[in-house]
Write a protein that binds this DNA or RNA. Structure first.
Lengths: 211, 211
DNA sequence: GGAGAAATAGGGCGCCCGACCTATGGAGAG
DNA sequence: CTCTCCATAGGTCGGGCGCCCTATTTCTCC
């Protein structure tokens, strides 16, 4: 489970990409920020593994943010204008990756995984796809891999101690009956039989932010 | 929660001290060994935080064990004959503490906490009690501190995914009714209301070996 | 365009769980 | 020597949980 933090002054874009990333099994959005200052404040608290930063932000440019953070956590620059000059500036400022906003989602996900694993993507330019290739598939604990997005959401809540059907239903905006359906499905997939064991598994699988 | 490993060729002594340590809220016995060779094998696997080693062991003396382990994990020598010569030898071999077998249990516990925190007790001789003073009280998460030994045992099992009353009863050699009594007590002390939340708490409090 | 999966919602049933209550023996504190 | 706490054990009762069904809508995939 990799925690990603998204910063973009275009709120809609930040929201959209968050949704998209959250739907990927091994990625989790730790939070979003709509500006550089907010990003610096939140990035440390949220304990993100990887930052996705837009270059063009009104209060603090992506460059400045990179310098202040000093490479920890590692950051990937995502920009509308992926030209050579910005690219070299971003690298100089400490970016671990540099991607266009038109990058396909699976490739972005792969880049996140690669950077999270400690890779620096900036030395590679033309052969980027080859570098990312080993990271194209979600790497998730077997078992959790077979869970659907919704089932993972439910399981995460259980791992946080939300145990009552009624409360789970309210948190997910669905009927209690549906909660039970999802639970039954989770039990079968993980070879367990009640929510207590499910909570244990949720934590073991790293679905819960326990830091 | 500090994991302690006990090595002593006098099995009864090892067992006894294990029982005594396990009854202390913030200590947990990771395992025991009845000889130096066994100790070296098991100490690494068990991931103990602190070793308690008897000097007088038939196959490998405590001195030799200390040298082979090289100070990690930190070890406290416990001996029947706490004379100056053995003491200096033990320190030279890398012991972090040197105690007589007649040391009171609370003091031993304090020594374990101190060494676990990175302290080296060997420089201090006469003023040992003053050094240990800050470590005399169990340092445990508030909440877990109020739990009894038995309640903690039950909670630990829950955190490992043992959820059924019947199975919990078998594991603890008590009646299902008693299990329920303990559970009710745990719920009240931790301000929770079911075993799912209890399992979450057990893990959060570090009662479960999740390494 | 038909198959399959996922998310949604519901009904019924048996059993376990949690809440509340009493009770006894042993250990430690005063 | 009491008084309190802990561990043990038991009883009752209502409600929630897990298990087995069916069903519809919306996707994606070939």
């Amino acid at each position: 489970m990799i925690d990603v933090f998204v910063a973009d002054d275009h709120t809609l874009f930040a929201e959209g990409i968050s949704q998209a990333l959250a739907a990927i099994p091994d990625l989790h959005v730790a939070g979003t920020a709509s500006g550089g200052v907010e990003l610096i404040e939140l990035a440390e608290k949220s304990r993100a593994d990887v930052l996705l930063i837009d270059l063009e932000m009104p209060d603090l440019s992506g460059f400045e943010v990179l310098r202040r953070l000093g490479g920890s956590p590692p950051a990937i620059i995502v920009t509308m204008h992926a030209d050579a000059e910005r690219r070299s500036q971003a690298i100089e400022a400490g970016a671990k990756g540099f991607l266009s906003k038109s990058t396909p989602l699976p490739e972005l996900a792969a880049a996140v995984r690669a950077v999270s694993a400690g890779l620096d993507l900036t030395p590679h330019t033309t052969t980027l796809r080859d570098v990312l290739d080993p990271y194209m598939e979600p790497s998730l604990d077997p078992g959790a891999a077979s869970l659907t997005v919704r089932e993972r959401e439910l399981l995460t809540l259980l791992g946080e101690g939300v145990s009552l059907t009624e409360e789970l239903a309210e948190r997910l905006y669905i009927s209690p009956k549906t909660v039970k359906n999802h639970l039954a499905s989770i039990y079968e997939k993980l070879s367990i039989s009640d929510r207590t064991q499910a909570a244990v598994e949720a934590i073991r699988l790293g679905l819960v932010d326990n830091r």
